[in-house]
Amino acid sequence: MAAQNLQSVPAELSRGESQEQSQEAAQREADGQANFDRVMAEDSRIEPRDWMPDAYRKTLLRQISQHAHSEIIGMQPEANWISRAPSLKRKAILMAKVQDEAGHGLYLYSAAETLGQNRDKMTADLIAGKARYSSIFNYPALTWADMGAIGWLVDGAAICNQVPLCRASYGPYGRAMVRICKEESFHQRQGFEILLELSHGTPEQKQMAQDAVNRWYAPALMMFGPPDDDSPNSRQSMAWNIKRFSNDELRSRFVGMMVEQVRVLGLTLPDSEIRFNEETRKWEHGPLDWNEFKEVLAGRGPCNAQRLERRREAHDDGAWVREAAAAYAAKRQAKQSMTTKEYAA
């Protein structure tokens, strides 16, 4: 009966209905916001199909996709050394590590997709140079010791940053980070071991290790992002329970850990101003060149162009594989539907 009535809805009534609909939408949004606020207050988790503020979605998308791109680009400095590794064991370890980085990129792309971003669009943005990734990967890996310094310092800084992200308020992001952190600790330990072996080797090897630490120290410290008073998005990210600690807080913790570990290596950190502030109970370090950070981030680092070019090449080189796999899948499907028809007949 209701359906019959609907067929001849007078114009005024349908206008009234749309007003009702927009009221309903407003109500849904208000309920959604209330639910979101409650989840934040309880320090619970937002899941993909929950209502969330647009700015929250955008912030997450930016952070997760940049993180994913960093993992993907981050394969390059190390992949370069697979064929140059000093032993079969080191080669196998490096391959496993690079494979992990690819995996981490894919976990994160999946998490970004749950926010409504298209996977191929993310790849296209990276290749077109429209997307950002961590500035650290625009520095060159000059010697074998760099594999050690990258593992120890760069992956060490990444772990420091990522452990609190396991508790990020967005469920899929936190879950991806749990998986990543589990795998990342092998990365740092193998880097430490490379440096330890070199620092206990010949004077030349020790010098090589020290040189690598000297070059990677400052860029690794800058991985935590700009100082707190120059990090406009941090406050909001912390209010949303995405970020748990400020950039400077994490950086200070990292310096404290490195100070201990570098002694075991028998090397030094290239920073004479490192000290423990008894008043603030925090580790302090010397000044960092934030101008350099901004330059590298803006695309003017030593390897930016090279990294993107390589990523583009890899994508183009893989085109025939993607096409072949799609063609094979289509052929199999056609065959299958033919067989099904035969059965039916």
Binding site: Q66, G129, K130, R132, A298, A305
Partner: peptide, 14 residues
Amino acid sequence: ASPVVEPADIKSSP
């Protein structure tokens, strides 16, 4: 000539 860095375009409606 290095890439123009822009924030990822996330306007496409989910």
